[in-house]
Design a protein around this nucleic acid. Structure first.
Lengths: 116, 116
DNA sequence: TTATGAGATGATGAAACCATCATATGGTCC
DNA sequence: GGACCATATGATGGTTTCATCATCTCATAA
């Protein structure tokens, strides 16, 4: 806990990006971003993502550890929420960057194809 | 190349975050973000960051591979630039998120301390 | 052409992350 | 309290990333 808080900001940022560096975790965050109140039960996430419950649980634990999501138990159901609106923004910006970058790469590919 | 372009967007996003998931790489990007024209020579980066040249080179190669930076050789000097303005935005948003999150964590810590 | 400066790449072992299965824990109902 | 559902955690081998040293490549000057 303490060890996560302390240290230069660039280290903490890198650590945050580590927490985001897996496809399943991105999917979770995007599903949450698109949900009412930015919240979903684990059951709902399981239905959307379609992986084994324990696999998803491992990834949710990672997201919790990085404080990217919060969880709340209600009876036997657990609801996950985005911990901060900036997470959705982060994903949106990443999408713009990738859209532009991939567009550029595809343009290059098309050019090479046109020459073949 | 092709393999990087193809696949679901959430996989590509996760890959991007992998590229950002190291302190040295964050420092590079932040130094570039803060520089005129978002550009710096490797020599300047070495001076700022103070690690061994080959270590930095490895990280710069990772950033190039993820298309987060571009490089241009001029004589014996190589200049690195941010490949897209959104990268600087990504870092700025991450900072806001972390500032808020860390502030919350510190508040909790202070509370616990106050009880001890 | 050789020497030198700047920067990149190759190689390798250690550390961290991932995939996956087994098991544990929390909650509800009968 | 036991059975069942929902979810989390533990364990372990495989894969990827990281740290670091050695070496290579590009460019320039003499």
């Amino acid at each position: 806990m303490l060890s996560e808080i302390e240290g230069p900001l660039y280290e903490i940022k890198a650590d945050l990006f580590k927490g985001l560096a897996h496809p399943v975790r991105i999917r979770v965050l995007e599903i949450l971003s698109a949900s009412p109140d930015h919240s979903c039960t684990v059951g709902e996430l399981l239905g959307e993502i379609g992986i084994e419950a324990s696999h998803l649980s491992q990834h949710l634990a990672t997201l919790r550890r990085h404080r990217v999501v919060t969880s709340e138990r209600t009876g036997s159901a657990v609801t996950y929420s985005l911990a901060h609106p900036k997470i959705a923004e982060l994903l949106a910006i990443a999408r713009v960057f990738l859209r532009d970058t991939l567009a550029g790469a595809r343009a290059l590919l098309d050019e090479v194809d046109a020459r073949a």
